[in-house]
Design a binder for these strands. Sequence first.
DNA 1: GCCCGCTTTTGACAGGGATCAAGGCATAAG
DNA 2: CTTATGCCTTGATCCCTGTCAAAAGCGGGC
Lengths: 232, 232
Amino acid sequence: MARPCSGQSCDACVVRDHAICADLNDGDREALSRIGRRVTLQAGQTVMWEGDDSTVVANVIEGTLKLATSTGDGREQIVGVVYASDFIGRPFGARTPHSVTALTDARLCLFPRGSFDGFAMRHGELQHRLLQRTLDDLDRTRDWMLLLGRKTAREKVATFLLDMGRRLRADADGVIALPLSRQQIADILGTTIETVSRQMTELKRTGVIDLIGRRGVRLVDAGALEALADAG
Amino acid sequence: MARPCSGQSCDACVVRDHAICADLNDGDREALSRIGRRVTLQAGQTVMWEGDDSTVVANVIEGTLKLATSTGDGREQIVGVVYASDFIGRPFGARTPHSVTALTDARLCLFPRGSFDGFAMRHGELQHRLLQRTLDDLDRTRDWMLLLGRKTAREKVATFLLDMGRRLRADADGVIALPLSRQQIADILGTTIETVSRQMTELKRTGVIDLIGRRGVRLVDAGALEALADAG
DNA sequence: GCCCGCTTTTGACAGGGATCAAGGCATAAG
DNA sequence: CTTATGCCTTGATCCCTGTCAAAAGCGGGC
């Protein structure tokens, strides 16, 4: 499922100042690090399955992953996308509430849940940081409910593109490389691949965005996108 | 906005064993209590507005409240319903991310956010409890995204009724008193009042539920509801 | 008990988005 | 360079659900 790679010390860790371990002192951080191990994932690999026992939690060191749930008959809804320095898994709980799958190749700092929980109970700074992050996640998730429940297809796609523009860095030409396929975008927006495609095409036709290959987008007129994002 | 009522000690508090203060010792709990005050709300009153500065947080002592966000043009989405012993407001953050409105008359144990944050920083048990609760909220919220994004109107209403059946106690006749109007149910399910009404009528016609007045429902065939809840 | 106001139900209709079905075009392999 | 394989786009059609409108019925107040 996941291939361990050479364990490195936290000194060289690229997310150490942003992940939940940021507030630990060097000694404690190394102690936490020894509880876990570094693993690499290939795009498409699933680390946790919805409903399984919660046995591991992890920091994302590099890459993008999706959190998803599905109905009995296979309809899928992506309930979150996580990036470098984000935290995944369900601490202090018996069940993993949704699956976690790598969208790109990724590296994790993986901890057995029991050991992590114990460490967290002894380190208030870590729990505080985790609380902050969870509260932020909850706020963002609830915002997304407005999109799923009340927005039109046009508004959904515009909102999605703006969100990507905020999270991802554009290259020199202003082009953003989407980490998601059309199907995955549809699974985030609660719509279908055809609808996403049609809306994208329409936005391109009206000059609001530019499409470069399958994964590239340039937000030509961000103002227009903002307007479309919550008023049709 | 909110009328203070006679402050009582925590000894008599009905939610003291379920709210986030449950793990505090008696002294600490009384200390926290002195930071806040008891307020009563009438059905319809709003305690916090979306986007406002986060100045207060609270425990719900009694009653039911809704958390909501809306688009610029007035479409509303209910993003959460809270009951007795739940916690509301945004600790450790500058902004209240969504409005909080009483659905029934309610009583709160209200704290200034700054004082609450300070107290929480000094009391790990409190933060741990808050973290547990926030993680649970996040799991439940993400589950709801599957409903909003992927379920049909029939599935949405069935899921809603089962959820209510789980949270609310039925009377001797097996009748549940919904704390929500049809419009509010529609705002939770991301649909319209007419669709909710039609689905309810249809479920009644097929003998799965019984409707008693405007707010009463009896889940006659819970098994059938389960089946309808995620398979059309 | 009766009336009024507001919520809920019911009806008719239309449209946005889902579904089904090809066709086109990046991207990677040979 | 050529070919093959999936993804993505585009087209045609249908239907679920939203919208607009009006009737019905519950519940509170007099």
